[in-house]
């Protein structure tokens, strides 16, 4: 197997991988986006570019709504496929054009601004000889190449067709892994899709994997939370709360051990800070809470606990959490606090 040349003993951010790469996002070509309003599509378009996406692929319907307000050179749209091209290029799935040339011949008679998408099911079907004939090629591959076959294929692609754009399809949940492996192995071009829409590698996990591996300047991941919100509003779809990187619940923490660690140094239990992806942390109370949770909750309300109060409050929280069969909501904690204060006043 071929593995990335990096020390396994260092923190990922110390590796400093900052090579050139081009990232294409396919969200706006997913048919689910066609029903969205133009203002939301424009906002999504701007957020994707702001995040560090280089090119956006879009369907004709989405393009029609955005035409005139977007940078044509950064858009990739399906173009005409000639019958002879289909017969000459096995696996040819689509031809795209961008605003750089729209398929026109340049002075040397070569077409510019054209991307040929070739879909292959098995490594042996890759038309190696044809890859370098075209000005730009996207190779769309299934994720069942993971885990056994991808490394050898990627190595061959590096040596024989390094400029190819890889687009892993997500049939088994491994497209993100393939995309990250491709880039860490030196691949320069990748096609992904926010939330994996359309069945591709998720933009958000690929970007954060790269960010952790040192590509800090290229990306602004702080826009991810805003992008999720706009996407939800535009499509009516709710993104699962525990979805990697963009789920609104991923920075909620209840476990006492974790809260204790986070309050000492948040990096103990977070791969990146909530602020890095434009989110915020929430410390919750429940059965798994410890004294650190209680201290935090009281301090956030400007309360200094008296001796023994923390322990009593923690016991009450855990008891109520068991009774409810879930963690406590903020208002339930407030009521618990008010009840305890009232008891204390009566004792006085």
């Amino acid at each position: 197997m071929v593995f990335i040349e990096s020390s396994i003993y260092k923190l990922p951010e110390e590796e400093g991988r900052k090579g050139e790469m081009r990232l294409t996002d396919r969200l706006l070509s997913w048919q689910g986006m066609e029903r969205c309003d133009a203002a939301s599509l424009r906002e999504i378009y701007e957020l994707l570019l702001g995040l560090g996406v280089d090119r956006l692929e879009m369907s004709p319907a989405v393009y029609a709504k955005l035409r005139g307000v977007i940078d044509e050179k950064r858009c990739l749209r399906p173009s005409f496929i000639a019958d002879e091209e289909v017969s000459q290029l096995p696996g040819l799935r689509c031809v795209y054009a961008d605003g750089n040339g729209n398929g026109n011949a340049n002075g040397n008679g070569e077409q510019t601004g054209i991307l040929y998408e070739i879909r292959v099911a098995e490594p042996q079907a890759i038309p190696w000889a044809k890859l370098n004939e075209k000005s730009a090629v996207r190779l769309t591959v299934p994720d069942h190449w993971f885990p056994e076959r991808y490394a050898a294929v990627f190595a061959q692609m590096q040596s024989e067709a390094g400029g190819v754009e890889l687009c892993p399809e997500d049939h088994n949940g491994f497209a993100g892994a393939l995309a990250v492996e491709w880039l860490l192995a030196g691949g320069e071009n990748i096609a992904v899709s926010f939330l994996g829409k359309g069945g591709f590698a998720p933009l958000e996990t690929v970007v954060m994997a790269l960010w952790l591996h040192g590509w800090r300047e290229k990306f602004d991941p702080s826009l991810f939370t805003r992008l999720r919100e706009v996407y939800q509003r535009a499509t009516g779809e709710v993104v699962p709360a525990y979805r990697a990187v963009v789920g609104k619940g991923i920075f909620e923490v209840e476990s006492g051990v974790h809260v204790d660690g986070i309050l000492k140094n948040a990096a103990c239990y977070e791969p990146f800070s909530p602020e890095t992806v434009g989110a915020s942390r929430s410390i919750r109370l429940g059965k798994h809470s410890g004294r650190a949770n209680v201290r935090y909750a009281l301090s956030a309300r400007g309360i200094s606990p008296r001796s023994g109060e923390e322990e009593a409050l923690l016991a009450s929280i855990q008891e109520q959490s068991r009774r409810l069969g879930r963690g406590l909501l903020d208002e339930e904690f407030e009521r618990l606090l008010a009840g305890l204060n009232s008891e204390a006043e009566q004792c006085v």
Binding site: P147, E148, A177, V180, T205
Partner: peptide, 16 residues
Amino acid sequence: HGDLGMAVANSLMAVR
């Protein structure tokens, strides 16, 4: 853990 969406992929590689 699945912070980068790769918990299953990483476990599979670990088995290999």
